[in-house]
């Protein structure tokens, strides 16, 4: 039983009319894993998540969630899932606490169970002081934490988070990451989508990179970086409009972007020294560790966040 994947997909397809949002993907997510979908907007991440959350049915391919078929057992599967959608759909007519207790009732919890569960989750989401507030005045970060708390109300086997920190300020993101990390440490299986590479690196044990409805790469954040990038990247900016790409040849792989040139190198400082030795004078130089952003750029030729 523990060996059975929580999510199993083969050739999964989702079409809307003539538009193919998900174009034949294979997936397996094991219990306890933190799994991520990384990709730009429109890559098919949310459509995949909606199929996994058994709200939308696949157009083609095979899908098993918790070993069950969503077409037949959608309600039974959803009873064991926690879903945090991309846009908060908290209930504006209910208080913070009622949003949790009301939601608990949909899962068949009794009134008393719902109340005690709401208390635990208000603590977890650090919203105890806001318990009787309406939802509207909450900050973006608080709403997100409440939505995540709501997703945990049934003590789910699998938690699905669609872009959990999109649109939040850095402080709110870090607090959220810390909460999600706690969940992960407790052994909760997390599946999330993101177009932030730092989020994927922080939270995911394993991820797939999606583009145009397909999976273009798969692995741990580290292994993806090792496979598709170099340990370090030098970002060079030049004040004048001269094409420097040719003058940098031989130092390392080059990616000329509209505003800067990326230079992939095993040793960033050595690459910078070589740039200077060639008599080139960039207006700014940044040596940094390679990231999933670079992996994505390498795989698709585009940046993640445009």
């Amino acid at each position: 039983m523990s060996e059975q994947p929580l999510i199993y997909a083969r050739g999964l397809v989702k079409r809307f009319g003539d538009f193919t949002a998900v174009d034949g993907i294979d997936l397996e997510v094991a219990p306890g894993e933190a799994f991520g979908f990384l990709g730009p907007n429109g890559a098919g991440k949310s459509s995949t998540m909606r199929m996994i959350s058994c709200v939308s049915l696949p157009t083609g391919g095979e899908l098993r969630i918790l070993g069950l078929d969503p077409a037949r057992d959608g309600s039974r599967i959803r009873a064991r899932l926690g879903v945090c959608p991309q846009l908060d759909n908290l209930d504006p007519d209910l208080s913070v606490r009622e949003n949790l207790t009301t939601y608990a009732r949909y899962f068949g919890l009794s009134k008393a169970q719902a109340r005690s569960r709401a208390d635990e989750l208000l603590d977890f989401a650090q919203l105890q002081e806001k318990a009787s507030s309406a939802v509207e005045p909450l900050s973006g970060g608080m709403k997100r934490r409440l939505t995540i708390a709501r997703a945990l109300v049934n003590d789910p086997d699998l938690v699905l988070l669609d872009e959990p920190t999109t649109g939040l300020d850095p402080q709110a993101r870090h607090l959220l990451w810390e909460r999600l990390f706690r969940l992960k440490q407790r052994g909760t299986t997390l599946v999330l989508t993101t177009h932030y590479m730092d989020e994927a690196e922080q939270l995911c044990d394993r991820l797939v990179v999606m583009d145009g409805g397909r999976i273009v790469a798969e692995g741990s954040p580290r292994s993806l970086i090792e496979t598709y990038s170099t340990p370090e990247v030098v970002e060079l900016r030049f004040a004048d409009g001269v094409d420097y790409a040719g003058k940098l040849e031989g130092i390392g792989r080059i990616d000329p972007l509209p505003d800067r040139i990326l230079l992939y190198a095993d040793d960033g400082d050595a690459a910078v020294a070589e740039v200077h030795r060639r008599g080139l004078t960039p207006s700014s130089v940044l040596v940094r560790r390679s990231s999933l952003e670079d992996v994505f750029l390498q795989l698709t030729g585009r940046t993640l966040v445009d």
Binding site: S53, S75, R78, A79, L81, V83, P85, L87, D91, R150
Partner: peptide, 14 residues
């Protein structure tokens, strides 16, 4: 507007 049903449909409710 409030997407209340959308939230409910993510639960076992049909």
């Amino acid at each position: 507007y409030s997407k209340t049903f959308e939230a409910v449909l993510a639960t076992p409710v049909k």
